[in-house]
Design a binder for these strands. Structure first.
Lengths: 178, 178
DNA sequence: CCATTTCCGTACATATGTGTATGGTCGGTC
DNA sequence: GACCGACCATACACATATGTACGGAAATGG
């Protein structure tokens, strides 16, 4: 049995709390309640609350990097398929929820904001490259890529009253763009 | 002198705190410090913290409605100019900062989320109407309007590492869309 | 000029959060 | 099966937050 907890169990639980109840719920008491232990356990694994936050951001930073690597591996695919793959990933609720929580957290944490910004820049570069491959001029590609990436960020934030686009609408949109 | 405070002074100060220090700074102590008074003054004007939040959201809701009204009054203008006016409003830092704070607040407050969603829907309808006037079919107009509004939301959230678009790039983008 | 309402300061009660000290318990090891 | 270290519970100190009670100053009407 896993009656004893490890450090990754704590970062797992912290990410759970982040995407379920938001950044305001990332406290020691709430996290201990979520994991079914008391505060004594937390202070054995971590020095303080800052150490936990650092571990969580480090964890999400690594996860995001691997996701970007998988996107980079799509370079073999035709550019339209790359754009489609990146766009459809936004519709996946599991990966979108944690990204949504991290972007909310980035509002109050400089380090998290840096990681999020780095990821955004990488996505922007990939989208711009795909548009250039599709025959767009560099100026047009830059402007259009900005529009697409900003739209993805806006959709990831999620609290819009707008209807969620369907897969068919995503395909129609890509047809309009390219 | 205005040595005594009114209710609107408190909502003004609360909106200041929201856009300067974020939603986490919206406390009674911090707000009293910002206004240079003590807690006794607060509890004279408001029953509790919930009453203040309600007043602030009501206030922002009214402000947003008047902004939308001013957009609706642009109906006399050609649709391209309407789109341009709405887009350029995003580049204004004063109005963008408070909107950014409100959207962050909406993550933890159901009522704020409702107001934000309502405003998003109104903007979406206006953009869609402008695109229809420009000769787009209803399907294309809906998809493109969603793209534009989501991009505006993403830009309003602001913590992207992407470069801020300039006025010239906005014009170029609108030229590509229409 | 005085009284009443309005507005604000002060002191206190309470709840909740982080962090510390200390002892107890479970699992592996010889 | 006794021991030792990893892991956790408990109790406490401390800071900060909301909310209440009450007294005082400042403005206003007569």
């Amino acid at each position: 049995m896993t009656s004893r907890l490890s450090a990754t169990d704590w970062t797992d639980g912290a990410l759970d709390l982040l995407r379920i109840e938001g950044v305001a719920a990332l406290g020691i008491n709430r996290l201990c309640e979520h994991l079914g232990v008391t505060r004594g356990s937390f202070y054995w694994h971590f020095a303080d609350l800052g150490a936990l936050k650092e571990a969580v951001t480090e964890r999400w930073c690594a996860d995001t990097r691997t996701a970007l690597e998988s996107f980079a591996s799509l370079d073999r695919l035709p550019p339209v398929e790359r754009l489609r793959a990146m766009t459809l990933r936004l519709l996946d609720e599991d990966s979108a929820s944690v990204e949504r929580a991290l972007r909310a957290w980035a509002r109050t944490d400089e380090r998290v904001a840096g990681v999020v910004a780095e990821a955004d820049l990488a996505v922007f570069g990939s989208v711009q490259g795909a548009l250039v491959e599709l025959g767009r001029g560099p100026e047009e590609a830059r402007v259009l890529a900005g529009l697409l990436v900003y739209a993805g960020i806006g959709f990831a934030h999620g609290e819009a009253g707008l209807p969620r686009p369907t897969v068919a609408e995503v395909d129609r949109l890509l047809g309009l763009i390219v």
